[in-house]
């Protein structure tokens, strides 16, 4: 009975196969990023600045201002349609962030119980309203970041981060972690396969073996990292990665960037949702 219980518990646990499938999805983003739509063709720096500006504008909203945020859905919707980024892909990628967002907002529901307004006979508290605002902010921010990643190859993003004077070590860390996640998952998958073949009734990895499993994976990763570093040193690496010069941004790229930034500010200053509501009602 105890074994059955443990098996059931592990059925709900994340397995290495799940990790591998997640990493496969990450590389699927890279496939999407090699598209040829108008959004894909925009200069990476213009997209990066526009995305950052948009997120700052969204994040600056007050904790109860759900209505004002609604107009911000316009930008990701247009970008998604033009770049042909599948909606399901964006939804699926947002799901892992959802528990964290809910965790951040759930305390508001418990402690901020004062009624804000009524929908028919049902009162909506300020806590629920602030949870909705957190959810909307997270959804909009994650979506624009995902659209940026799905329309810009990782190497171009890394290149632009370096040009924004982000420390070279951090940029290289991002680029190489991205490159080596696949190899690490292959390593973990191979170990997991070898494990399950000799423990066919076991679902996932038993807690008793988890320490040595992760320890071995860590040692293998360190070994791999040392060999990669040796290969880099053999080809003249001295600590700073030299990147290919990016293509120059065209006027259209900057027009896009300025438009997104201007509209982000405009939407923040003028409550278009309220104005639209007054016109319609």
């Amino acid at each position: 009975m105890r074994d059955c219980g443990r098996t059931r518990w592990w059925k709900g646990a994340v397995t290495i196969a799940d990790i591998k499938s997640s990493i496969g999805e990450l590389y699927a983003i890279e496939q999407l990023a090699r598209g040829a739509s108008a959004v894909h063709r925009l200069h990476p720096m213009a997209k990066l600045i526009a995305t950052a500006f948009y997120i700052i504008a969204v994040a600056s909203y007050g904790r109860y201002d759900a209505g004002g945020l609604m107009v911000y859905a316009f930008y990701p919707a247009v970008m998604m349609a033009v770049s042909e980024t599948p909606c399901r892909f964006l939804l699926r990628r947002f799901l892992p962030a959802l528990p964290f967002v809910l965790l951040a907002g759930i305390s508001n529901v418990l402690f901020d119980t004062q009624t804000a307004f009524f929908i028919g006979p049902v009162g909506v508290s300020f806590g629920v309203l602030s949870l909705a605002v957190i959810l909307i902010k997270a959804w909009l921010s994650v979506t624009v970041v995902l659209i940026l990643a799905a329309t810009t190859p990782m190497q171009d993003l890394a290149c632009q981060l370096a040009r924004l004077r982000i420390p070279a070590v951090l940029v290289m860390l991002v680029a190489m972690t991205y490159r080596y996640m696949g190899i690490l998952s292959d390593e973990a998958h191979a170990m997991f396969t070898a494990y399950t073949l000799r423990a066919p009734k076991q679902k996932g990895i038993a807690m008793a073996h988890m320490g040595s499993f992760t320890g071995q994976l860590l040692l293998r990763s360190i070994g791999r990292a040392e060999r990669v570093y040796a290969a880099m040193k053999c080809r003249g690496f001295h600590g700073a990665q030299r990147l290919a010069p990016a293509r120059r941004a065209a006027a259209a790229d900057w027009v896009f960037c300025v438009c997104v930034c201007l509209f982000s500010v405009l939407f923040r200053v003028v409550n278009f949702s309220y104005l639209l509501g007054r016109i319609l009602v």
Partner: peptide, 14 residues
Amino acid sequence: GLVFQNPDDQLFMP
């Protein structure tokens, strides 16, 4: 020039 045994050690760029 040294060519490593495992090409995954040598190919680290995108």
